[in-house]
């Protein structure tokens, strides 16, 4: 049964993975991956020893940690709230609509948000009617990162909630009935039945998403940033792109490898933690 999967992973994943050696090479396309001369750690040196790198790394961690910290729980909360709805058509409609933003690329959304959050835009007009001074949503670093994180969560919340809705269906109705008979209210039922029911999925998704910690959402930033926030939104991806005008595959591969290694270590660590806390039950392996 494993055969189709094994063949697939071997051909389309492990085979091209040999290309990772490019990170240690002075890659020349005409000489091929194998034939190019070795460059030792030169590519990594170019990557790490630039004075802009520490800032890029810090920004990446800040933005990604915020995304992970808040973005991870948002779909769970949405799923729980949806679960509380009793009117079926309403539930379905909200569900459908919240997953809609996922289909818009950031090129489109970026333009819309620049319009909404500009100094004289609708967001600030609304605030003005409450007598609040204009907020520099786009031009102050902390505010801009807030906008990035919030709109990022907004975009993927409905999409992410789908898995939890699926998991909710796996919780046996009898448990709720028994709890109701024992006099447990909705809140208690949620805390003692629903949440524990979701925990396994949550742990798996959390472990997997920790691996993405060094990916801070390039597309979104690229389509929304401006000179005043260059410094606070310069992430590893934008930093690498800036250096890459000469199509330097070596440095690009080195950067990718760095991100992957960090991701892998984080996953292994989180998994070990999950295993220890749950006595070997909840980890991925």
């Amino acid at each position: 049964m494993l055969l189709p999967g094994a063949v697939y992973f071997l051909i389309f994943h492990f085979l091209p993975m040999g290309g990772l050696v490019v990170a240690f090479k002075d890659y020349r396309m005409t000489e091929g991956i194998v034939g190019s001369p070795w460059a030792g750690l030169d590519n990594f040196r170019d990557l790490f020893l630039n004075e802009q790198f520490p800032n890029a790394l810090r920004n990446t961690l800040v933005i990604a940690a915020l995304r992970l910290g808040l973005g991870f729980f948002a779909p769970i909360i949405l799923a729980l709230l949806l679960n509380e709805l009793r009117v079926r058509w309403f539930k379905r409609t909200v569900q459908t609509i919240t997953y809609l933003p996922f289909f818009f690329s950031w090129v489109i959304l970026g333009g819309i948000f620049l319009m909404l959050f500009s100094t004289t835009g609708p967001m600030n007009s609304i605030l003005a009617t409450f007598g609040i001074d204009p907020i520099p949503f786009l031009t102050s670093g902390p505010w801009f990162i807030t906008v990035l994180v919030v709109t990022g969560i907004w975009q993927s919340i409905g999409y992410g909630a789908v898995i939890y809705l699926a998991a909710l269906t796996g919780i046996e109705v009898q448990l709720y009935e028994a709890a109701a008979i024992d006099g447990a209210g909705r809140w208690k039922q949620t805390r003692h039945i629903t949440l524990p029911g979701l925990t396994p999925v949550m742990i798996v998704l959390f472990i997997l998403s920790v691996g993405q910690l060094l990916s801070a959402g390039f597309d979104q930033i690229y389509n929304m940033y401006n000179p005043l926030v260059f410094e606070s939104t310069d992430i590893i991806d934008t930093y690498v792109l800036r250096q890459l005008q000469g199509l330097d595959f070596g440095v690009a591969t080195a950067a990718g490898m760095f991100k992957s290694v960090v991701g892998l270590m984080l996953i292994i660590g989180t998994n070990a933690l999950a295993n220890r806390l749950s006595g070997g039950e909840q980890g991925l392996w």
């Binding site: 085979l15 091209p16 290309g19 990772l20 490019v22 691996g211 595959f249 892998l264 392996w285």
Partner: peptide
């Protein structure tokens, strides 16, 4: 574990294109 590795490490554009 090997499968997990494929989630994180990709060979990159050139090797994939060659493949």
């Amino acid at each position: 574990f090997a499968m997990l590795i494929t989630m994180l490490f990709q060979g990159g554009l050139v090797p994939m294109y060659l493949l």
